[in-house]
């Protein structure tokens, strides 16, 4: 846990008090240093496969190839650049069509299934499965299955949607909408300790989508978009990576952009702590992703108003 001396003297005293174990549990004003939370390591197997690590990336969004793909382009960072090399380990198809990709500080890749156009290769029963590609060997294996909601329904073809990693604690946060229905919000956000493979905390009855972590406000905060509206909420994370308090409204994408009702596909925190929010149309159906245009919204924290504001 990193503690920071705050400008405000009163807070300093409070924080000093927090150092005493006897007060620790009653203290909820922990102030933490800024951290870019960027610890992902290139998977070692990429190099052994003959790929140039700086020009390579992983993808789950190729419309003709199911599963995970390793690609090398001639212009890193340019999505339209020419692809010079591709690779797919035979095990990378075992989860069907996949969606989130998360690389941890050991170079292991975490991903999960998400249907593409239909569920032929994505049985709903597998929607809450996390797969792990070993950073050394490149072999994908089932990492763990998250609990399923009471019943599987044909209304909602989705399960795990978002993943984000807290470097400080080695905690993987996974959002899943499995089991949710039109009138029942049954989704979860799970906090999973990667070392012990255990769920250490969870938020229930919430259909969260893309997530991001930032330390900008002097707190360790998880931001997540709501799958049912365009709001983004945040919840404070404690030093163990558990949720501290209840999620609170942070800001919204409602009425922004071309569509005005975007949902959050992904939230990325840049090096200065601004939030880059990727918005798409999403209505819990299987409309082809190519029909969904994406808009990236940049939100900046205003220290004076203590609010996140859209940066134009």
């Amino acid at each position: 846990m990193k503690l920071k001396l705050h400008k405000n003297g009163v807070i300093i005293l409070l924080i000093a008090g927090c150092l005493l174990p006897v007060f620790l549990t009653s203290c909820n004003e922990e102030v933490v240093d800024f951290d870019a939370n960027n610890c992902k390591k290139n998977p070692p197997f990429v190099k052994t496969m003959g790929f140039n690590a700086s020009n390579s990336f992983f993808s789950t969004s190729d419309v003709k190839t199911m599963g995970l793909l390793l690609l090398q382009s001639d212009q890193p960072g340019n999505p339209n650049a020419r692809i010079t090399k591709t690779y797919q380990h035979p095990s990378w198809k075992k989860g069907g069509w996949l969606a989130p990709i998360l690389v941890d500080d050991a170079g292991n890749i975490f991903t999960s299934p998400a249907p593409f156009i239909n569920i032929l290769n994505n049985p709903i029963v597998n929607n809450n499965t996390i797969y792990r590609v070993d950073g050394k060997t490149g072999v994908m294996e089932e990492f763990m299955r998250l609990p399923f909601a009471d019943s599987i329904n044909t209304q909602n073809p989705y399960g795990i949607i978002g993943m984000v990693y807290l470097c400080e604690t080695g905690t993987l946060y996974v959002s899943s909408v499995a089991g949710s229905r039109l009138h029942e919000e049954n989704g979860h956000i799970y906090a999973i300790d990667l070392k012990s493979k255990k769920i250490i905390d969870q938020i229930t009855h919430i259909d969260a989508m893309g997530m991001g972590i930032t330390y900008t406000t002097g707190k360790r905060q998880l931001f997540f978009g709501n799958g049912r509206n365009s709001d983004i909420k945040s919840v404070v994370l404690d030093a163990e990576g558990k949720f501290s308090g209840s999620p609170e409204f942070a800001f919204t994408l409602a009425n922004l952009g071309q569509r005005g009702d975007d949902k959050v596909r992904r939230i990325r925190s840049d090096q200065t702590g601004n939030l880059m929010v990727h918005g798409i149309e999403f209505n819990f159906n299987l409309i082809a992703p190519r029909e969904k245009q994406e808009t990236v919204y940049k939100f900046v924290y205003d220290e004076e108003t203590k609010k996140w504001t859209l940066s134009l």
């Binding site: 239909n118 229905r181 159906n285 299987l286 082809a288």
Partner: peptide, 22 residues
């Protein structure tokens, strides 16, 4: 024109559905 290329589309409701074309 492309071997094995195509889609299997379901049609149906706009919200909470397995429809690719709504």
């Amino acid at each position: 024109g492309t071997d094995g290329f195509g889609y299997s589309d379901a049609v149906g409701c706009p919200y909470f559905s397995q429809a690719a074309v709504i």
